[in-house]
Amino acid sequence: MITKAIKKAFELAKTRGWDKTYWAIDIHETILEPNWSDNELPTKFYPLAKEALQTLTCRRDICCILYTCSHPSEIEKYCALFAAHNIYFSYVNENPEVINKRYGNYSKKPYFNVLFEDKAGFDALSDWKKVISALEQYPEVIKAQQKSS
């Protein structure tokens, strides 16, 4: 399922001439194994999640959005945890790069091309490996003049 979404996103970007796609990524039961604690944030990555996210978040043709119901104070801690592992998100629960148009209102639901969410079928135990394989099939392609920005 996730590989189909990735393939569709890259093919759509190519046919429409987009320089990037947008990927919304949940934390709990997607990136990190939950601990169900009220006092301690989970910090244990699912197998291959860290490696996949390091690749994803450094690509210029992918804009990663942290998509979470975490409280603001928790989000700060999660962002620090991810940064310590060279994982960086461009936005949290928003995508200001895509504005409202006739065919879509993005004021309450951010626009994205690919969704990593356990409640939507993402399986953190098996899908990160598929993500890594899919990224290998779609190497980053950005024109030289765009790399300098």
Rank of each mutant, 00 (worst) to 15 (best):
T57H: 13
K44T: 08
R60P: 12
I132Y: 02
P96R: 11
K7C: 05
C58H: 15
E76D: 09
S126K: 13
L81W: 11
W23P: 05
Y111F: 14
I6W: 00
T68Y: 04
T3F: 00
T68A: 08
L115C: 04
Y111H: 08
L56K: 04
K129H: 14
I62Y: 03
A24D: 07
Q137I: 00
E140I: 08
K147T: 09
L48N: 10
L41G: 02
I87W: 08
D127W: 09
S73R: 15
N93M: 10
A80R: 14
Y67H: 12
C64S: 12
K44C: 07
K143T: 09
G104T: 06
N39G: 08
A5K: 01
A24Y: 05
Y22A: 12
K50M: 06
R102A: 15
K8S: 13
W18Y: 06
N93I: 07
S107C: 11
T15G: 05
T68Q: 03
P139T: 03
I6K: 01
K119C: 14
K109E: 13
F89A: 07
Q54S: 13
K77C: 12
P139E: 03
C69Y: 00
I2H: 00
T15A: 12
A144N: 07
K147P: 07
E33P: 07
N39D: 12
L66K: 01
D26L: 10
L135D: 03
E11W: 02
M1L: 09
E76N: 10
G121N: 06
R16G: 01
E11L: 09
C79V: 09
S37G: 04
Y67A: 14
N39V: 09
N95M: 10
L125N: 14
K14Q: 14
D118G: 04
V141K: 08
A144Q: 13
L115W: 00
P34H: 11
K77H: 02
D26F: 08
I25K: 02
T57W: 10
R102V: 15
F112L: 03
K108T: 08
A52F: 10
T57C: 15
C69S: 04
P72E: 07
V92S: 11
L53R: 01
R16W: 00
V114H: 04
P47G: 05
C58T: 14
C58G: 10
A49Y: 06
Y91W: 15
L41S: 02
F10G: 06
I65G: 08
N113F: 07
V98D: 02
Y138P: 11
R59C: 10
K109S: 14
K50N: 04
E97P: 15
S90I: 01
Y91A: 12
T30F: 01
N39T: 11
K108E: 13
A24E: 05
L12G: 06
Q145Y: 08
S73F: 15
R102M: 15
W18I: 00
A24K: 05
K101I: 12
I142C: 12
N95P: 11
I31C: 07
A84H: 03
Y67K: 09
T68C: 08
V114E: 07
I27L: 14
H28G: 10
S37K: 04
N35F: 11
P47C: 08
H85R: 07
